[in-house]
């Protein structure tokens, strides 16, 4: 466990030099693997996630024997962390199968079921496999972002981008009242900031297309850490939706750039500004 002494620095800056609402650098590559139907690699700061999508194909194994959902497709997710992925130094013994990974797989499944049109894939299964290569905070949200990109790369039609973002409320009682922008929650915390006493809210949202309205549908929300008082919830929600909106525009730009590179010059050539 890392002891965080001075999380609140002067001038409203966090230890890595970011402001409260600033995201880490996001770098994206789509189509990483040739053999998979769709794949994407996303880096949010030091968190590196690789996602591959296989499908739609015939259901296999135990999911295939359950014939109750003939009308809709099945989404099957697996969240796995590389053994050397932890930034804090220890080595993980098993890459998957522990409770945290299974819970994250389930949450990822919920998020993806919200955006995929499962009615157009009856009796089929779509597999989404997440491999976390390096973990430095908000890995679940990065994996949701990566999964969205991988689905786009696989050519599976989706309703909207599913964007994940974390907001962390740091319970530091020694904070002065004047500079309290940090008190309302910081976006996209890294591992050190997540370890501090406080609550981290991971939210997956489907942001609206127009950049004016800061609303959107929240699909999955989970909290980790200490208790959160309901009065602070609204402001956190507003912040995280703002963050989701920002991430959406970044990912949208990356997708358009990738598709333009891949496609031949045509009428659908999109201007990139």
């Amino acid at each position: 466990m890392i002891e965080a002494e001075n999380i609140e620095d002067q001038n409203g800056l966090r230890p890595d030099g970011r402001r409260a609402l600033e995201l880490r650098q996001i770098r994206v590559k789509m189509g990483v693997f040739g053999q998979a139907d769709g794949s994407a690699y996303i880096e949010q700061g030091n968190t590196k996630i690789l996602v591959t999508v296989y499908g739609p194909h015939q259901p296999r194994g135990s999911t295939g024997r359950n014939t109750s959902n003939i009308s809709k497709g099945i989404v099957n997710c697996q969240y796995s962390m590389a053994v050397f992925s932890l930034s804090s130094g220890e080595r993980k013994r098993k890459p998957r199968g522990d409770r945290k990974s299974q819970e994250r797989s389930l949450q990822l499944k919920h998020a993806m079921e919200a955006i995929i049109h499962l009615e157009i894939y009856p009796r089929s299964q779509i597999d989404i496999y997440v491999e976390a290569l390096q973990v430095d905070g908000s890995e679940y949200c990065a994996s949701v972002n990566g999964a969205t990109l991988a689905l786009i790369d696989a050519g599976i039609p989706i309703k909207n981008y599913a964007i994940g973002c974390t907001v962390t409320l740091i319970n530091n009682p020694s904070l002065e009242d004047e500079d309290n922008t940090l008190e309302k929650g910081v976006l996209d915390a890294n591992y050190v900031e997540e370890c501090t006493p406080g609550v981290t809210l991971s939210v997956v949202a489907l942001p609206n297309n127009d950049s004016t309205s800061k609303d959107g549908l929240i699909v999955v929300a989970q909290g980790a850490g200490q208790r959160l008082h309901l009065s602070q919830f609204e402001s956190l929600k507003a912040r995280v939706l703002y963050g989701c909106q920002d991430i959406r525009s970044i990912l949208d730009h990356a997708v358009r750039e990738y598709l333009t590179e891949q496609s031949l010059p045509s009428l659908f050539h999109v201007a990139l500004n």
Partner: peptide, 15 residues
């Protein structure tokens, strides 16, 4: 040595 066959290679490697 520890080898992990990730499911990203093929769905047969899941679990």
């Amino acid at each position: 040595f520890f080898v992990d066959c990730s499911a990203t290679a093929t769905p047969a490697f899941e679990g």
